[in-house]
Design a protein around this nucleic acid. Sequence first.
DNA 1: CAATATTGTTTCGGTACCGTATCATTTACG
DNA 2: CGTAAATGATACGGTACCGAAACAATATTG
Lengths: 117, 117
Amino acid sequence: MSINITAGQALRLWHQSNLHMVLDDAPDLSVRQIAILLTIYLETPPHTVRGLAQKLNVSKPVITRALDSMGILGLVSRRRDENDKRNVLIQRTVEGSLYLEKLGDMIAEQARQQGEI
Amino acid sequence: MSINITAGQALRLWHQSNLHMVLDDAPDLSVRQIAILLTIYLETPPHTVRGLAQKLNVSKPVITRALDSMGILGLVSRRRDENDKRNVLIQRTVEGSLYLEKLGDMIAEQARQQGEI
DNA sequence: CAATATTGTTTCGGTACCGTATCATTTACG
DNA sequence: CGTAAATGATACGGTACCGAAACAATATTG
């Protein structure tokens, strides 16, 4: 289950994947935005602004603004928690799932191409 | 030599690594800056502003500004090409090497921890 | 109930980045 | 030579993000 790669391989993988993200047509998310997006999609819900801010050790406005930006891109959506109306529950979207699916495929493909000189 | 991982593993690796970069004390570089930095360190020199701009398909000011920022951080340095004084040669630094060494170690470590639940 | 706490958003001033256009310097060429 | 081309840097107006503080809405508590 665990992946064994050298630091050099890791760096080359990071390089190629970052290059692809930059060259890609898709709008470039910041490192923070990517971290937020992946947390929403890979970790167990529910996700709140406060929870994400704590997890990433950033201020709440950072989360609010990232959700604004990524909401415009359709990558996430927000809904009021009906049980506690102070809370906002962050939800996944079809578009976001698709975005991350492509990202995962791209990175795995870059890994596969490592060392093929 | 080639690494075989699933898209899901790639995504989790990306997630954990991005989380570490955000939580890290080191100043957060943008995705573009990281792409530029890794190109300088992993691809064959010489590196020029124009060459990097072409490779990443961005305008030259983007490169100039990224080099300014990363230069202040000590991650790269610049030197005039004495053969053709229009050119600026971008050079690696000890600090930059160290930065990327740590980055590679961190990503490899995250890979190693994949699936350890 | 009133006072306090919690949650997410907005505002504020500031910084950093973007793309386009322009500039200064250097080289190539007619 | 003198003009054109190439290279990198800078100016400019605009956009997006940052942290701190203030805010509105809701929930908790005494």
